[in-house]
């Protein structure tokens, strides 16, 4: 990506761009600073940061969604970081899977942090977490089955949380796409964890064998989409297939209610 060319192109469209940005040199400098921390795929975010500075447009909505996503990623990242230190709980495959997921969640924290900064925001600090959920899961880091159950809950909740925020990101296509790219990774994680637990990779109805996290699945049982009844839409599509084939979103309030027992301080 040639920054000079981009700036030249902007200059043609808006001759006053540098008055808005102070100077071309400061534009280049702030760009270079951001470029040091961002991979190529995130550079459009830096660009939008520059536009925001010039034109005062980063809707609070987008930043708010990113802070919410960052909180969830901190929750997950902290969980997996702690989990993989308890090596005696795992067999080799389990530890490898958790390590893969842990790396992704840490990467999501980094990317969201940088994205919030690039948009001119200040990332909220990570809260202190209590992965026993105030005593609901006392064996979280001593029982493999409890550990996996919580992991499944976090992943399936994460999928629903991102899905629920997509429409709030439509005004920033770059951020929307990044959020979608995280969303599907969370779904991959969810499928794998579910299968580690002997479950199907997909969610049937609102069923879960973990009653303490039922709220993560409530609402997954819908059999119609946009007024189209999916059950029976073809001979192969029974109610199970209808509910499995569409994952459902959760709004922010519902997600907050699910994760708040794990959060000690905000």
């Amino acid at each position: 990506m040639d920054l000079q060319n981009i700036l030249t192109a902007i200059e043609k469209t808006d001759p006053e761009i540098y008055e808005r940005l102070d100077t071309r040199r400061s534009a280049m400098k702030s760009f270079a600073n951001v470029g040091k921390v961002l991979a190529l795929s995130a550079i459009p975010l830096a660009l939008s940061s520059m536009f925001k500075k010039a034109y005062g447009r980063t809707p609070a909505d987008v930043l708010s969604v990113l802070q919410f996503a960052l909180l969830l990623e901190h929750l997950e990242s902290g969980f997996y970081t702690e989990a993989i230190t308890h090596t005696s709980l795992f067999d080799a495959a389990g530890l490898a899977a958790f390590t893969t997921i842990s790396n992704h969640e840490a990467a999501h924290v980094t990317l969201l942090t940088q994205t919030i900064q690039a948009l001119g925001g200040t990332p909220d600090p990570a809260p202190t977490f209590d992965y026993t959920a105030d005593g609901t899961f006392p064996s979280v880091f001593s029982s493999y089955s409890t550990l996996l159950a919580i992991a499944q809950g976090f992943e399936d909740t994460g999928v629903r949380a991102y899905k629920g925020q997509a429409a709030n990101l439509q005004e920033n296509k770059t951020v929307l796409t990044v959020a979608l790219q995280i969303h599907s990774v969370e779904a991959r994680h969810a499928a794998h964890i579910r299968r580690m637990r002997g479950q199907k990779g997909w969610i049937t109805g609102k069923a879960t064998d973990i009653s303490a996290i039922q709220a993560t699945y409530n609402g997954e049982e819908v059999e119609a989409q946009g007024g189209v009844t999916i059950t029976g839409i073809a001979s192969q599509v029974d109610a199970n297939a209808a509910t499995e084939s569409f994952d459902e979103p959760l709004d922010r309030a519902a997600v907050t209610a699910i994760v708040s027992p794990f959060i000690v301080t905000v």
Partner: peptide
């Protein structure tokens, strides 16, 4: 969004 996570 509802479909892509199932594909994933």
């Amino acid at each position: 969004g509802k479909i892509v996570s199932v594909e994933a």
